[in-house]
Write a protein that binds this DNA or RNA. Sequence first.
DNA 1: CATGAATGAGATTTCATTCAT
DNA 2: CATGAATGAAATCTCATTCAT
Lengths: 206, 206, 206, 206
Amino acid sequence: MAKVTRRERERQQHRREVLAAAQELFSRKGFDRTSMAEIAERAEFAVGTLYKFFKDKKTLYRALILDTVQEFAQVLTTALKTRGTEVERLERYIETKADLFVRHIPTARLYFAQTAGAKYVPTAGLDRDARAVCKGVLDALEAVFRAGIRKGLFLKTDPRMLVLGLEGVGNAFLDELIERPDDFSAETMAGMTKTIFFERIRLKAR
Amino acid sequence: MAKVTRRERERQQHRREVLAAAQELFSRKGFDRTSMAEIAERAEFAVGTLYKFFKDKKTLYRALILDTVQEFAQVLTTALKTRGTEVERLERYIETKADLFVRHIPTARLYFAQTAGAKYVPTAGLDRDARAVCKGVLDALEAVFRAGIRKGLFLKTDPRMLVLGLEGVGNAFLDELIERPDDFSAETMAGMTKTIFFERIRLKAR
Amino acid sequence: MAKVTRRERERQQHRREVLAAAQELFSRKGFDRTSMAEIAERAEFAVGTLYKFFKDKKTLYRALILDTVQEFAQVLTTALKTRGTEVERLERYIETKADLFVRHIPTARLYFAQTAGAKYVPTAGLDRDARAVCKGVLDALEAVFRAGIRKGLFLKTDPRMLVLGLEGVGNAFLDELIERPDDFSAETMAGMTKTIFFERIRLKAR
Amino acid sequence: MAKVTRRERERQQHRREVLAAAQELFSRKGFDRTSMAEIAERAEFAVGTLYKFFKDKKTLYRALILDTVQEFAQVLTTALKTRGTEVERLERYIETKADLFVRHIPTARLYFAQTAGAKYVPTAGLDRDARAVCKGVLDALEAVFRAGIRKGLFLKTDPRMLVLGLEGVGNAFLDELIERPDDFSAETMAGMTKTIFFERIRLKAR
DNA sequence: CATGAATGAGATTTCATTCAT
DNA sequence: CATGAATGAAATCTCATTCAT
């Protein structure tokens, strides 16, 4: 049934090799400071070959980002769909994300370039589709919050704000985790996120 | 008494005009996608003139970032030094920062580029000094948390983590504020930050 | 057997074409007054192409000089190794050099730029290796003089001084030969060098 | 009688200061690698001021070369006019030149740039008048040789060739003297020139 | 007159992209 | 298909020269 020829399989394999080379370089040096020649060299292909797979540099970058983001989004959305209370589901999300990031640091950097960093340091609209995928995750998060609020588990607040808050805290810790992977464990950072976000910092409310 | 000649005053004025043009462009398009020619055109000077003020593009960028960051750092550090309990001082910091960002959006973008974005999209270590200034603010924050913990106001946690958490939440809201300045007010965002960070989200721990 | 592909052969041919264009221009106008654009145009390549062969202008210049100097040095050293008395070997050297220069004027100019001119009009130490090669020839000359002195053929003088003297006389005539190639023959100039250097000018010492 | 005002005297003094600064820089780095700004700074004038004295960079360079060459030519021509046989007059010339060069090394470098080096490394026809002055010295030398030949003192050869030969030997030693002023004395080098040029190198002609 | 800020043409270098083999 | 040599537009930076003060 599978009518993928060997040719086609090889081609896809080569495409992945190019993307892997690109990921390493883009995540380390950014879009503008990475040249097609470098990517070609690291992937052990000729420059011309890159253009067989991707029409231009932007397209290659976009494809890479999309791959990265989809892969992460898939895992994160799944985590949010697990059984349990809304609190448990969010905790699962936090843990999964920490684990995912620490295990795929270059990918995580690129993911961040689209979610956190890209807002301030313009990767010049190289994203569009990737943004949509990210938004999917945020929408799923929002839905969980909305449900939690309805059940009286969470503060009655605009759930979009809760999403922003959770992502803010969480990403701050994940960033630290990525930059200094030897100083912290994924568990520690996930724990911190839960503490800050779910528990009160100020000891006495009264 | 004034030992600055008119010549010198004009020179400084022109330097500021160049920095203003650069700020607009760098904050919008980033370092690599902004050309010296563009800056010159916007500042209404010839390219060569930029090089009278700044020895090269990097130096111009660094000077701009340092200016930006110092200005913000000065205001934020002052806010942290006001009278009151540690909670009140942090609230003052949050409010001041929101107000500052919404009133100086391009500057805020550049400030972010140093604190958040620079980690993922490398502007190739064009910063150094600016980083030190930013760290100064974070250290001041840390000191407030440390004092609050000692007085039993805050959770007994690594104060650096509390700094990370507060900045994470706060910047997430500020980013939204900057990107959609018409949808939210500085007060709203400061309020959200306080809610998320200081109050419990989860209504019932039990 | 031929392990060089046609691709590679062509590449080397093109590299040589670039060097030829550069030689003409550098020898006529010097390093600073020759632009990469001019070289490219004369070689009938795009500017970018030059940078595939040579990483920058200095490198191109150095490669050219080294080629030039090695080629000449090889011929001159060979001439010094011929059979015969020291006087005969020096005469062979003088004749060979005159012949070589008159037949390769642009090359000769560049050779001179390294031996004579470079000292006064600094091409900013773009040489190093080339200097070493030149020194090789001078050392060989020195050895011949040293042998001649030992055999009682020459004046008992510091042989380095004899080298300086011979080169001084010889190059003065060769320079004239190069500048006005139609006024003199290589033989005349070689003859003059031998006369001045080997025979007494002043008829009567007493 | 002297109707030169203080103004005019000052002006001339300033002009000389500019030329002195230029000499140091041009002799060390050459025409192209010396900027007007550098000259201005070293002379402690503003760039604009340089243009009051000299219409452009070329003119400044030419004036400097002309000054230099005239100064040297004057001394050398005088040496050639002393009493004595032709041999003695040439010896006087050789000694004077060596002494002059070792005492004014930067000036000597510039003089060479016009006489020796300029032939190979083009200072792009920045000379004209200077060449004429140099030619004056060479003509005077030629006249001495011509007289010597007539009197039977010298070999019956084209006197222009003798000039070339003498200058060739002499300059070779002077160059060495300039480059390594601590290794040799003016007397040594003048002595070597006389030996090589006037005495036979090859001990036995017969 | 002297000043030095401003100019802008021109030089070097990089790099995404094309295309003949 | 893959290759990699060739292209040329664009970016950075320099510097001789001008001119308002």
